[in-house]
Design a protein around this nucleic acid. Structure first.
Length: 238
DNA sequence: CTTAATGTTCCCCA
DNA sequence: TTGGGGAACATTAA
């Protein structure tokens, strides 16, 4: 915090539509989470980091084949590495907008009302960042399992109590995942290059064929909203 | 060899 | 506005 950007470079055109020179001289006053994104806050504006599937921010790491951008501070460097290049950097002049509420800020009743006002598969809606910010494929599956809700259940037909339970499960799963510093299934590492450990506590994600922790029924894998989707066919009835 | 899988979301269509 | 499908990319496993 309080580090001034001495220079910045974007290695690939794809990583940002903005000009790296516009970052020079900016001082990072705060680093915040905004949904799945990371926001570096300057005195005015900021830099919004979208990690995509395989992006990572790395402090004091050497430049590698997947380094897409580099910020140099006084004595510190920050890499944006990203294998698949679904991630990006965006220079902001105002607060980020356009996403739904954070699960930690919305209450269960309001969550349930908003969910029931829509008519789609519940898994698809959880992945919609304009509906709710911060839940991705792993945590959608893990939260639906804990709430005992089938991923293909229609949102409109979920009773309020079940929708409220889903909100509770989302908050629980995210809280635990943050405590365990994330899920490192293959690539994910934090800014120091360290893996998380929440993957050891996954109950359904990529567990197809393995017995459910509750009822021993084999976990199933289907495709929902074009994403691999894992659930217990007994604990999560349609 | 080919095909499918992977933590995302943007763009286009109905 | 809402809902749904495919593409963008790199790498690994089957």
């Amino acid at each position: 915090m309080g580090h001034r950007i001495e220079s910045a470079s974007f290695v690939t055109a794809r990583v940002s539509k903005d000009r790296p020179e516009d970052l020079t001289g900016k001082t990072v006053r705060d680093v915040r989470r905004h949904g799945k994104r990371v926001l570096l806050v300057f005195d005015e504006g900021g830099l919004l980091v979208k990690l995509g599937m395989t992006g990572s921010l790395l402090v004091d790491h050497p430049k590698g084949p997947h380094t897409r951008a580099r910020l140099e501070f006084d004595g510190v460097t920050l890499n944006f590495d990203d294998i698949r290049q679904f991630g990006s950097l965006q220079i902001l002049t105002a607060e980020p907008a356009g996403l739904g509420p954070d699960p930690f800020e919305i209450d269960a009743g309001e969550f349930a009302a908003r969910l029931r006002a829509r008519d789609t598969q519940v898994k698809r809606l959880l992945l919609d960042q304009s509906f709710l910010r911060g839940v991705g494929n792993i945590y959608a599956d893990e939260a639906l399992f804990r709430a005992g809700i089938h991923p293909l259940a229609r949102t409109r037909r979920l009773h309020t109590e079940r929708a409220r339970h889903l909100h509770t499960a989302i908050v629980e799963v995210l809280t635990l995942a943050i405590e365990h510093r994330g899920s490192s299934v293959s690539d994910y590492v934090d800014a120091a290059g360290k893996s998380g450990s929440f993957q050891t506590l996954h109950r359904v994600y990529r567990k197809q064929g393995q017995p459910c922790a509750i009822c021993q029924t084999p976990i199933r894998r289907i495709v929902a909203a074009q994403r691999g989707t894992h659930f217990c066919p007994r604990c999560q009835r349609r």
